[in-house]
Design a protein around this nucleic acid. Sequence first.
DNA 1: ACCTGAACACCGTTCAAGT
DNA 2: ACCTGAACACCGTTCAAGT
Lengths: 207, 207
Amino acid sequence: MARKSLSQSDFIEAGTEYLRDHTLSELTMRVLGDLLGVDATACYRHFSGKAELLTAMLDTLLGQVLEAVPEVVTAPRELLEAQCVAMRRVMHDNPQLATAMVASEGQMPNALKMARRSIAALRSGGLDGDELIRSYQMIESYVMGATQFDLMEAPHNMEIRAARYGMFEDPAFVRAARSVRSVAAITEESFLAGLRILLDQCLGQSR
Amino acid sequence: MARKSLSQSDFIEAGTEYLRDHTLSELTMRVLGDLLGVDATACYRHFSGKAELLTAMLDTLLGQVLEAVPEVVTAPRELLEAQCVAMRRVMHDNPQLATAMVASEGQMPNALKMARRSIAALRSGGLDGDELIRSYQMIESYVMGATQFDLMEAPHNMEIRAARYGMFEDPAFVRAARSVRSVAAITEESFLAGLRILLDQCLGQSR
DNA sequence: ACCTGAACACCGTTCAAGT
DNA sequence: ACCTGAACACCGTTCAAGT
């Protein structure tokens, strides 16, 4: 039998790819092994367990956000908004992983990088002390939370939301519920509107 | 052996009580059976499975929110804020259930009631059409999402957040990280500040 | 150094059998 | 009508054994 000599990134990539079309609970260690033509327990030679693999997959995702928003010299307001929008888009493209986002930031270097960038932007926007922390936390909780909430039950999330709208018995919602696409559009619009309202309030209007 | 003749609410209450001191993954059907002095499979005589039980537990939680905010005649802005704050408090008191909040609203009558109340308030605040939907969705995603995010990994969530702050290498965050209590306080302040900013923008300043 | 394969201690759930 | 208890098809993970 030929040696496989797999690396961490092989498992990360195979898992992330698999989650494009499958549920998180469908990604078992046995399936992951099959994907790489290897035994179910081979993963344990590279990660302490499933949790650590998941964390590595998540951090890789955050790396994509950092790449999507190069740290060029832009106004802090624009850098922040761009980073938040990129974060949401990456999560939107990987809903299964996004909704499993964990708080174990200790092992996620890219999460740390993103946070430091945001804080630097808020600082150069004039914030400091407790106001800085409140603003940072408000934006992080909004972007991560609202996006996770909107992606819940993906890929059927917007069908489910449309069905809910239909039960509200309100003419505006019932009309919107007829088109899943319009429900999805409204969801994105409301996220972006909310983000801008919060950023405006934290950093002052810039448009 | 005496007949137990349990009802749905017995399982809901026992499970919710158990989750006060235990993780969601620790609440297995076998444990639930032990709590009620009954076989592990007895639950299937009252619920189709664990998912349906969980949904029932969640809806019971939403019922507490409805009770906490009686539908007295108040200004729409105040009703909305009170309902959002009550929602967060109930989730805060039941973090394990709150972070498992599901999108299966079809079987959650109290979720429907809450939504209709919110929509009525927004309407009497002068909103209509797509603007009404955007405002509703913005507030729902913010309250549910940010709260779920802040409660992630409870009951150690604030210790984890404090540890993160310590790694930011920013003087303001490092100072705040010395007290878990202060991190928790800042989290609540930033949630409330964000909520008020969004409500102000949707319904106009009322204070 | 890395992978295998059997094994362990769990899950949620089904179903025939009890009362 | 409701509960029991064995059983099924899974999990993640461990560990001795291979190469």
